[in-house]
Design a protein around this nucleic acid. Structure first.
Ligand SMILES: [Zn+2]
Ligand SMILES: [Zn+2]
Ligand SMILES: [Zn+2]
Ligand SMILES: [Zn+2]
Lengths: 156, 156
DNA sequence: ACCTGAAATGAGAATGATTGCCATTTTAAA
DNA sequence: TTTAAAATGGCAATCATTCTCATTTCAGGT
């Protein structure tokens, strides 16, 4: 369930865990220990994490399992894969689970990715405009992705 | 120079060519035949092109030169590298040259990328909102990137 | 608590886009 | 024309990601 309006607190770990179990079950996948550790790692990250960052935070996850299980989790709608201009991907918990539609600030110098949210009014304006553009081009809109490229505090 | 307000016609090939020469000169690079062919190929593409698409349209461009010269052209600000969820990059002429700030419709099924433009009013609203978010996070905003993900006409 | 077949794991090999290397060719200026 | 620097093109190397397969874990039935 969505949190009450105005409540920006994160869904509790336990609730997220239950939701993950449901999502995995829906695609006939088990919620194994390795997958639980991945979800935990992503919950703790401040922004989307790279494979290396995940490896670093949890020594017990072999690389091949990280890749395979992130693919499974993405298929189940538990995580989202994020591609920037760096040559490796990043992963974060799906918005469905965090209940926060958000966007990314990307530092073009060091590659760090930070989450941020837009005002609801702006989001709505945007969605309308995108729906119009999609219609003109014969596209069926599913989602949008908005990144701000710039320099982070440390790279000015 | 930017075209007159309301004029959405493309900058002529000759003008673009001159501008490319200037941009390359600014970073001490020559405007060679191979680089001219790349610019021509990108001008003809309906959207951002992959390396393979460029190879296909111009048989006289060896792959290693395509990669090397696209990197040079990107460095000079002539082309923009676009990364989607496919595992290969796409390139298009920089907005500086086409004089059209635009965004992308990306088909999540077949990967095709199509350009579209947003209403100026929406762009301004967006820029304001992004500037605010950037300030809060200590970022210096440079540019934004907005994609609509969905299904193209052929993949519905 | 045992079976038993299916799913998951982990170590390493294979893949494939991209980058690096270097001998040869082209360019621009003297 | 000479000459040094820049560019080229074929191919090797890199490296994130995917694949393979032998072993382990799991769930369900007994
Ligand atoms: Zn930075
Ligand atoms: Zn995020
Ligand atoms: Zn499509
Ligand atoms: Zn474009």
């Amino acid at each position: 369930m969505a949190p009450a309006a105005g409540n920006v607190a994160h869904m509790s770990e336990a609730v997220i865990d239950d939701e993950v179990a449901v999502l995995l079950d829906a695609v006939d996948q088990r919620y194994t220990t390795g997958r639980r550790r991945l979800v935990a790692a992503l919950q703790e990250g401040v922004g989307p994490l790279t494979i290396n960052e995940i490896s670093a935070t949890d020594e017990n996850l072999p690389q091949s399992s990280i890749y395979r299980n992130l693919a499974v989790l993405e298929e189940a709608g538990v995580v989202t894969r994020i591609v920037t201009n760096d040559d490796f991907a990043r992963y974060e918990l799906a918005e469905k689970l965090t209940a926060h539609h958000h966007h990314h600030l990307i530092c073009t110098a060091c590659g760090i990715v930070v989450d941020f949210e837009l005002d609801g009014r702006v989001e709505r304006t945007l969605d309308q405009a995108l729906a119009g553009a999609a219609k003109e081009a014969g596209f069926t809109p599913m989602d949008h992705r908005l990144d701000l490229l710039g320099l982070c505090r440390d790279c000015q």
